[in-house]
Amino acid sequence: MAEIRRFGLVRHLRSTPTEHVVHQRGDRVVNSGTSCSFWFRPLTAALSEVPVDDRELPLLFHARTGDFQKVAVQATVTYRFADPEQVAGRIDFAIDTATGRWRSAPLDQVAHLLTETAQQHAADLLVTTAMADALGAGATAIRERLRTGLVGDARLGDTGIVVLDVRVVAVRPDPDIERALQTPARELIQEEADRATYERRAHAVERERAISENELQSKIELAAREERLVAQHGANERRRATEEAAAARIAAAAEAERIGLAAAAEADRVRQTGTAAADAEAARMAVLSELDHGTLLALALRDLAGGLPEIGTVNVTPDLLTSVLAKLTDGAAR
Rank of each mutant, 00 (worst) to 15 (best):
residue 188 L to N: 15
residue 171 V to L: 12
residue 152 G to S: 12
residue 183 T to W: 10
residue 131 M to S: 09
residue 184 P to G: 14
residue 183 T to E: 11
residue 163 V to L: 05
residue 159 T to C: 04
residue 161 I to W: 00
residue 138 G to A: 06
residue 153 D to Y: 06
residue 143 R to W: 02
residue 144 E to D: 15
residue 183 T to L: 09
residue 185 A to D: 10
residue 161 I to C: 01
residue 162 V to C: 06
residue 182 Q to E: 13
residue 134 A to W: 01
residue 177 I to R: 08
residue 184 P to T: 08
residue 130 A to S: 14
residue 141 A to R: 05
residue 172 R to I: 12
residue 132 A to P: 04
residue 153 D to R: 05
residue 177 I to E: 03
residue 141 A to W: 07
residue 150 L to I: 11
residue 181 L to I: 02
residue 176 D to Q: 06
residue 167 R to K: 09
residue 147 R to Q: 11
residue 154 A to H: 07
residue 136 G to N: 13
residue 165 D to A: 15
residue 134 A to E: 00
residue 182 Q to D: 07
residue 148 T to E: 13
residue 156 L to T: 13
residue 160 G to S: 11
residue 179 R to C: 06
residue 158 D to F: 14
residue 186 R to I: 15
residue 183 T to G: 14
residue 171 V to D: 02
residue 174 D to Q: 09
residue 148 T to C: 15
residue 185 A to C: 14
residue 159 T to H: 04
residue 144 E to C: 12
residue 152 G to Q: 03
residue 135 L to V: 09
residue 166 V to H: 03
residue 188 L to S: 07
residue 156 L to R: 02
residue 159 T to G: 02
residue 165 D to F: 14
residue 169 V to Y: 10
residue 169 V to I: 12
residue 141 A to T: 07
residue 140 T to Y: 06
residue 136 G to E: 01
residue 181 L to A: 05
residue 158 D to R: 14
residue 178 E to S: 04
residue 151 V to D: 11
